[in-house]
Design a binder for these strands. Structure first.
Lengths: 151, 151
DNA sequence: GCGATTTATATCGCGCACGATATAATCGTT
DNA sequence: AACGATTATATCGTGCGCGATATAAATCGC
């Protein structure tokens, strides 16, 4: 149970951050053929999920949920608007705020997307329990990283 | 123990892919202040680690290790060359191949980087054992995703 | 009620990340 | 030897993702 020497920590295969980095990309690649027919990229898909969950959110609220900056979201949301999936409207009470609402098409897309998580789930060949456990562990890790960053 | 209804699978907080996506970004943000003094971005750092582990690799070998395409690596490697950390030389025996070797500066940077994983490790407030276990689970997941993609 | 500060979104520049394609070198078959 | 197929890297266009900055609206202090 000796401590690993510092040198060993600088190996790609030992780095937790690289495991996350590469698994994240692998997920994106796996989603692509499923999202292409919907005309969505993977980050756009995440934004749509956030809106299907709760329509009419502001840009910041979406950013808080997905941990993205306005510099990322504003162009992405404009592309979704151009695609006819959402509408961007300035809040009447506070003109600084932009509220994002689903169009009929945007809402309808939810049905087509409904089967995607299950398809992906099968590809992982993990049980629902395993997926939940792993997701929760990674979420906890992310929260710790966020806390560390804020400190 | 009933199966979760399909609707629940389309919630951001339940998605394993989003956990990975956001934790990956959180890691990158945490690394940034540590890598800035070295003049490296996070993906560049990964490439340097791969080279410190094994100098003189070809572009494809690095791509295989990090799961990146030449369209990503070529510009990145050119930036590392401009920064004076690596040298790109065509292989004498096979002129198609570009071999990447560390310069003296590139090699020297390893010492400055040596303490980074430990600093990050502290930020996660996980034991070495937990980190290893989680990294290995995520790596297994990534392998399953890759397998699914190839199929 | 007016200037200073804060807040919400937008813009810009840079660096990934990838698919599609291009180019050039090597290999295999004949 | 020649030619078609394969391989390694490079190039291009699109879309993130972020830090720094800009802009405009709301709020605070007085």
């Amino acid at each position: 149970m000796a401590r690993a020497p510092a040198a060993d920590l600088l190996k790609i295969d030992h780095l937790l951050c690289f495991a996350l980095y590469s698994a994240g990309h692998a997920f994106t690649r796996l989603y692509k053929p499923l999202l292409d027919p919907l005309g969505l990229t993977y980050p756009q898909f995440l934004v749509m999920i956030a809106l299907w969950e709760n329509d009419g959110q502001t840009v910041s609220e979406i950013g808080d949920k997905l941990l993205l900056e306005s510099s990322t979201l504003t162009p992405l949301l404009k592309r979704l608007e151009t695609a006819g999936l959402i509408k961007r409207t300035r809040d009447k009470d506070d003109e600084r705020v932009v509220r994002i609402t689903l169009t009929r098409q945007g809402l309808a897309l939810k049905d087509k997307a409904a089967s995607i998580p299950e398809t992906i789930g099968c590809a992982t060949s993990l049980t629902i329990g395993d997926v939940k456990k792993l997701a929760s562990e990674i979420k906890t890790l992310r929260q710790k990283l966020q806390t560390a960053l804020a400190a």
